[in-house]
């Protein structure tokens, strides 16, 4: 199976919940709380952020997704995070603390802190999307009062990713079928292919839009399941809220580092 096919499969698999038991609304509530907890830890205390990794690690294992998958996918945001934090070590050279006789500057500490926060935040969001499924997540967002246009936009972006990948897949097959195993195409040809891909995706999107209109589409994507709170969801929220708050406010590191 080609890389593109795998990409398409993983994009599409994001649409459905990983487990039937996941309640999107409860999951979203915990995720929001978690994001606030992670982002509110003081910048110069990375040792306190690490403990918050308990949530993505435990929850991804419990839901059967596996932390490794979540972790690897979260690395996608690394370039962005690095870009944000990269100047801190240069600009802030004041010593924060000493490790084995080496001075660690405040810049480095804040840099590490930014990277950790970014990764953990991304992991929590991915975990939400992967376990609740993209559409149920959108439904939960609506329940939380997120404006309709934004949610529809989110759904379109998601579907458009699949459309582009699908077109790329057809083009890739056509190229391979006539390429006789050749690999070293000139750069110019790749450029043309990217242009082709954009044109094709655009035309396809226009035709798809027409087909959507024909079936009564009025600008808002219908949301699949009605999300209902059960006793289970309340337990889920209660349990994780206490854990996250504990990890956020109790200084666990100080139990280990004297």
């Amino acid at each position: 199976m080609s890389k593109l096919e795998n990409t398409l499969i993983s994009i599409n698999s994001l649409a459905r919940p990983a487990t039937d038991r996941t309640d999107a609304v409860a999951m979203l509530a915990v995720t929001l709380l978690y994001l606030v907890a992670v982002l509110s830890v003081p910048l110069y205390a990375p040792q306190r952020i690490i403990w918050l990794a308990v949530y993505p690690v435990v929850q991804s294992e419990v839901s059967g997704i596996g932390f490794l998958r979540v972790f690897l996918r979260s690395l996608w945001v690394l370039p962005l995070i690095l870009l944000i934090g990269v100047f801190n070590p240069v600009l802030d050279t004041q010593t924060a603390f000493m490790v084995g006789g080496v001075a660690v500057s405040r810049g480095w500490v804040s840099f590490i802190s930014i990277v950790l926060r970014g990764l953990l935040a991304m992991q929590a969001v991915l975990l939400l999307a992967m376990s609740a499924g993209f559409y149920d997540m959108c439904g939960a967002l609506r329940r939380f009062g997120c404006p309709r246009v934004l949610v529809t936009q989110l759904q379109f972006t998601y579907r458009y990713m699949a459309v582009i990948t699908e077109e790329a897949l057809w083009m890739d097959r056509a190229r391979k079928a006539r390429g006789f195993g050749r690999r070293n195409y000139p750069l110019r040809m790749w450029g043309r292919m990217v242009g082709q891909l954009l044109v094709r995706s655009y035309e396809r999107a226009a035709r798809v839009h027409r087909a959507m209109l024909a079936r009564g589409f009025d600008g808002t994507m219908p949301l699949s399941r009605r999300t209902r709170m059960t006793r289970r969801s309340w337990c889920f929220i209660a349990a994780w809220t206490s854990v996250v708050l504990l990890l956020r406010f109790a200084d666990i590191s100080s139990l280990f580092i004297k």
Binding site: Y135, R159, A162, V208, M212, R215, G216, P222
Partner: peptide, 22 residues
């Protein structure tokens, strides 16, 4: 072109698209 009518992640969602819009 049937591909233009199938744009949801699964066939079931595609077939449900019209009724849900209704």
């Amino acid at each position: 072109n049937s591909d233009d009518m199938l744009f949801m992640p699964t066939i079931g969602e595609d077939v449900a698209f019209g009724p849900r819009n209704m």
